[in-house]
Design a protein around this nucleic acid. Structure first.
Length: 406
RNA sequence: GGAGAAAUGGCAGAGUGGUCGAAUGCACUGGUCUUGAAAACCAGCGUACCGAGAGGUACCGGGGGUUCGAAUCCCUCUUUCUCCGCCA
């Protein structure tokens, strides 16, 4: 927890106190309940035997017990509520590989690949390219909705669709089963994957129906397995799905949000895995290889970061970020985030399996973007630009039907 | 949106105030029998929590209520089905 710069000690101390209190109160309550049940049964017997007077005498005794039980129950409920509240405030325990650190400056770069594009002309940033070739209209999005909701047009739209198809096909080849989930979820789903209550303000909330627009397909895909007990320990569940993602992202500003760098609505193909705890590390590795494969397929220069404690999300035990280099903006853009959650989500989801001893045990969950579109589009436009147009990476040709934008 | 019906264990399906955590069938697990299998027969077979254990508590869609006692009665929400309306 220290790695996160999160002081868990006061919360844990309070939890321990509350828990001890809860145990004793609960024991007391249950013994009162047991007495009540016993008396009720006796009354039933007396009535059947026609002993009205004795039964009524027994009834008289219950009043006090009943009252006592009600008081104890209220106390137990209150303690349970407090305990749950506190537990929700505790982030996941970072994996041993995760280094301590405060912010993104402390993240470790663990791999770099690809070659830097050099230009014999002055490269344009993607927001100028999209305008020049009429691929994405940001102003139109403002008119229809607001900032951060661009309108993709013509070859821009086609490129978008091609990338989605490419990512989904690759995911399918890697054994992930495609799903098209709802784009709106209920509160229970938000809690299941840990967006609630931690990221309450990040999601669009439809108050009238108490539903949330999904910030990622992770939420509906993983919640498919909420309240599920897998029958045995021989499982490895791999899901994928394309969805739009909606994020309020309050408080961001400046050049970081220019163009496609940060949007309120964007497209993403997500991969999700439900794994046996012993297989969690291997699954994470496989997912990394998968994402690498996509980036190499697209011919983009990228690097992989292992996030430090402070930058790792609340729910994750370990996260690897993939960034592609934008030559025109001269900066790294995050295009994927692959995380293992260990039992953090499965605890909230009540997602378990029956182990060899027939005991229920919590599964591990993992997920990753494979990939998030807008910044990939930005990188492709910028890195594949020529003096008079934009080339399309080879792997996309069969999806776009064209190999050049001009 | 309007009218009606329903929600019980993995599934099917009894149960309308007390001995019901819940009949029965199927499925499943173990055993007998068999060279093996099937069939038949016998036994077992929900989940969570508290407790060292004995045991206890809670759960019959969710929440609340009536009662000494609720699967059963009342209120409410959700979901499903049927009919009507509307609709891509």
């Amino acid at each position: 927890m220290k790695k996160r710069h999160f002081d868990a000690v006061p919360i844990v101390d309070e939890l321990l106190t509350l828990d001890a209190d809860w145990r004793s109160k609960k024991g007391e309550m249950e013994s009162v309940a047991a007495d009540m049940n016993k008396i009720s049964k006796e009354i039933g017997l007396l009535f059947r035997e026609g002993k009205q007077e004795e039964a009524n005498a027994a009834k008289a005794k219950t009043g006090e017990l009943k009252e006592k039980e009600a008081i104890l129950k209220a106390e137990v409920d209150e303690l349970e509520g407090k305990i749950t509240q506190l537990m929700y405030q505790l982030p996941n325990l970072p994996n041993e590989l995760v280094k301590a650190g405060k912010s993104e400056e402390d993240n470790e770069i663990i791999a770099e690949a690809g070659t830097r594009r050099v230009y014999d002309f002055e490269p344009l940033p993607h927001w100028e390219l999209t305008e020049k070739f009429d691929l994405i209209n940001f102003e139109l999005g403002v008119k229809l909705t607001g900032a951060g909701f661009p309108v993709y047009k013509g070859k821009g739209a086609k490129l978008q669709r091609a990338l989605i198809a490419y990512f989904l096909d690759e995911a399918e080849k890697a054994g992930y089963e495609e799903h098209i989930p709802p784009h709106v979820v209920n509160e229970a789903s938000g809690f299941g994957t840990g967006q609630l209550p931690d990221k309450e303000g990040q999601m669009y909330h439809i108050t009238e129906d108490d539903l949330y627009l999904i910030p990622t397909a992770e939420v509906p895909l993983t919640n498919i397995f909420r309240d599920v007990i897998l029958p045995d320990e021989n499982f490895s569940i791999k899901l994928t799905g394309y969805t739009p993602c909606f994020r309020r992202e309050a408080g961001s500003y400046g050049k970081d949000v220019r163009g496609l760098n940060r949007l309120h609505q964007f497209d993403k193909v997500e991969i999700v895995r439900i794994e046996h705890p012993d297989n969690s590390a291997a699954a994470l590795e496989e997912m990394m290889q998968h994402v690498k494969g996509l980036l190499e397929g697209l011919g983009l220069e990228y690097r992989i970061l292992r996030l430090c404690g402070g930058d790792t999300g609340f729910a994750a035990a370990m996260t690897y970020d993939f960034e592609v280099y934008s030559t025109a903006q001269e900066k790294w853009l995050e295009v994927s985030s692959v995380s293992r959650f260990d039992t953090f989500q499965s605890t909230r989801l009540r997602l378990r399996f029956k182990n060899a001893d027939k005991k229920t045990q919590l599964c591990h969950t993992l997920n990753g973007s494979a990939l998030a579109l807008p910044r990939i589009v930005a990188a492709i436009l910028e890195n594949y630009q020529t003096a008079d147009g934009i080339e399309i990476p080879e792997v996309l040709h069969k999806y776009t039907g064209f190999d050049k934008i001009s």
